[in-house]
């Protein structure tokens, strides 16, 4: 670990000013991922700017019927917030599927979006890794890659995005509110995270001097037909091998609208508009879901240890859509998949 300075931001403008003045600085809010990475010598900021006291902790309804979530709302508060539990239960479930209650108490909503991959090689500062050290090579492609990506990979990186919450936010088509030196802007969730291509060091399209201030949820919450299914190597407190967030709007047995996103399989939550198109207007049944799964996984490619993720994801998609269609979302505490 290398030492760093510590300063506190007095308001959002001050935070932006401070980070713009020091390119080696980083914001810290919950710290659950950043401090972990600093201790492993993976992140080496020379200054931490504490934004945890900024007034970004509200959850409020928007004029358009959605909800605006302050970037510093702790994950637990968000998961248990009455508005979220009632109108966006998919988001609640996905948050509670991740990490532990202690970590969720600490982690912020904005921080969850910018958490970094769990790829073993990214975490081990002695091995080559293009994400940690651009140009050094990807050790995972021919290494221990059981946890790595099968979709959207590149020759330079096969890391995955580890968040559960973001998989639900992708389905809910959240909007990320950010502020930088040039002012505020919004980023559609689908455009927030990047694929690795040949710049795997960049996880997101957030500029280095921008700060996330809020996450906006559009009005549509899919609170009746949804499910979040997380498949992992132990029954709790582990990252996803594959996770699926599914949300349906049904008219009897017919699908009016469908959204599906995958976690644990790509450098970002993975959606496919084509897959959702084939669901629309069809009967909510396993064969329909399987068609969507095929499209979602059309370009999937394994790297040896993680080949199984393709078939696993296919089955998980069908199961999750089935749970959503039946209105019986996966329980967080009862681990049986119904």
């Amino acid at each position: 670990m290398i030492p760093f300075q510590y300063t506190r931001a007095s308001d959002v403008a001050d935070a932006i000013k401070q980070i713009a003045a020091d390119p080696s600085a980083k914001f810290i809010a919950g710290g659950t991922n950043l401090l972990d990475l600093i201790k492993y010598d993976v992140a080496t900021p020379t200054r931490l700017i504490d934004i945890s006291r900024l007034p970004l902790r509200n959850v409020e309804e928007t004029a358009t019927g959605g909800v605006l979530i302050g970037a510093l709302v702790p994950n637990t508060d968000l998961a248990y917030h009455p508005l979220i539990e009632a109108r966006y239960p998919l988001l609640s479930r996905s948050i509670l599927a991740g990490a532990s209650q202690q970590l969720r108490n600490m982690a912020s909503t904005g921080g969850n979006l910018v958490q970094r991959t769990r790829c073993f090689y990214f975490y081990d500062a002695t091995t080559p890794c293009n994400k940690r050290e651009p140009g050094s090579g990807c050790s995972a492609i021919s290494g221990i890659n059981r946890i790595n990506a099968i979709l959207g990979t590149s020759q330079s990186c096969i890391a995955t995005h580890p968040s559960d919450m973001c998989v639900a936010l992708a389905v809910l088509e959240a909007i990320v509110h950010v502020t930088g030196p040039a002012g505020a802007r919004t980023i559609a969730f689908a455009d927030f995270h990047r694929l690795p291509d040949n710049t795997p060091q960049l996880d997101t399209n957030l500029e280095p001097d921008e700060i996330i201030t809020a996450i906006e949820l559009p009005a549509k919450g899919f609170s009746t037909n949804y499910s979040y299914l997380k498949i992992r190597d132990r029954l709790s407190y582990a990252f996803a091998l594959v996770s699926v967030a599914a949300a349906l709007e049904l008219d009897g047995d017919t699908i009016k609208e469908a959204r599906v996103a995958l976690g644990g399989v790509a450098h970002k939550p993975w959606r496919s508009s084509a897959a959702e198109v084939v669901l629309r207007g069809q009967r909510a049944e396993a064969s329909t879901f399987a068609n969507a799964a095929d499209i979602l996984l059309r370009r999937a490619r394994g790297f040896g240890h993680n080949d199984f993720k393709i078939g696993l994801a296919r089955r998980a998609i069908v199961r999750t859509l089935g749970q959503a269609a039946r209105g019986t979302p996966q329980s967080i505490s009862d681990k049986k998949i119904r």
Partner: peptide, 29 residues
């Protein structure tokens, strides 16, 4: 069901030298 120390034999290193990725049972298991 869980425990396995994963080596990358190219580097002669343990790649899951922690207790997030070296899985031991948790309460839910």
């Amino acid at each position: 069901l869980h425990e396995e120390t994963l080596y990358d034999h190219r580097f002669g290193r343990v790649m899951n030298a922690n207790i997030a990725e070296y899985h031991v049972p948790v309460n839910a298991d």
